[in-house]
Design a protein around this nucleic acid. Sequence first.
DNA 1: TCTGGGGTCCTAGGACCC
DNA 2: TCTGGGGTCCTAGGACCC
Length: 425
Amino acid sequence: MLYNKNKIALVDCNSFYVSCERLFNPSINKKPVVVLSSNDGCVISRSTEAKILGIKMGEPYFKVKKIVKENDVKIFSTNFALYGDISRRVMKTLKLFSPQMEIYSIDEAFLDLSSVKNKNLLEHIHKIRKTVLQWTGIPTSIGIGTTKTLSKAANYIAKKEKSGVIDLVNSNKIDELLSKIKINDVWGVGRQLTKFYIKNGINTACDLKNMHNGWIKKNTSVFGSRTAMELRGITCISLEPHEEKRKNCCVSRSFGKKVTKLEELKESIATHCLNAAEKIRNDNQTVKKITVFIRTSPFHMGKNYYSNSKDIDLPIRTNDSITLVKQALMALESIYKKGYQYQKTGIIFSSLEDIDIYNKNLFSKINNEEKRIKLMKAIDYTNIKYGRNALSVAQAGFKKKWNIKRQYSSRIDTACFDLLPAVKT
DNA sequence: TCTGGGGTCCTAGGACCC
DNA sequence: TCTGGGGTCCTAGGACCC
């Protein structure tokens, strides 16, 4: 086996959404803070202080209300405009340390640091951490290993260290450290695999690493053996520095309150459809298949539960909002049933392709196609300038009574002048 | 009363063909 | 009326991620 000389760092922002809110509100530093998901439904980011209080990730807000009240926990609704902007600043800073970088999520990136000498490695990652904090105000943890999975593991431990940094490349205690990671905390091991592994006596990352490869291959999918090999330092998941265009685009929302009327469902589907269409136009893509889905609350199964979806295979690829909304509403009407309390609707665009590939449509059914393309461009431009929904179609509704709850928003938008925080002098 | 949203990849099984 | 084997491609659904 070849000795793997890769050095992959995983930089992960600590309690990212909470850290973003703290940037503009220093009074909540060192206090318990949580950020809620859309519709103020679940806890999706917690400060260390909130974690200590026992608030779990993903827990519904109504279940932790008592803890929140008793401990004066600060609450925020999501503000993705803000988090996205801060994320871009963090990534831009990281890129200076390695052009070979893969943005893995809004708050994580893999960096290829193979060219850094071993003896300088630790110093180097401390410098990355310090720079990101200084330039963006966001605290991070950094783990480094010879594979992505090992860097994830290192990062997991780094999060608990005061230094915020763990180097598994130059470590002779890899097994010891991996023994501290429970099997369900290993990257790539989810609920199902955890159940299976524990049943077979594999309880930690170290157990999995030292398990016979033949056994893993036989009993799990390629996924399982890939993870185990990566823990041994054999690269199976390579770094992908080039951003790929998305292959699917989904826009869905839960309602702020239950909805029964077809008219209101129509408004929501039209709204989601417009947002999705804007997204794919922005990426210069067209769509071939759309799926519309509606459902009542899955948490009250059996009690008049209804969930259905409808696919429509478009005769011609398009990204024209008007055509797409029309199709989506037809799909909705075919699955709508009276008498249900709907909780969520959504739309999925799949088999997306680059627009250039199918630029010319011999059989286009849209009259004046050129004009329509110009119209879409005008809509997108106007909405960027004057805010989303400045220009819309009538089907999307005006009142949107069904719209989400967003009770605790910090209302900071770094791209909107009126919502910028003011500094008193 | 109140339970997020947006992705990717893998696999089994069906449809179809020779 | 009986009956084979092998291949490809597509899709739905599951598992996983943040």
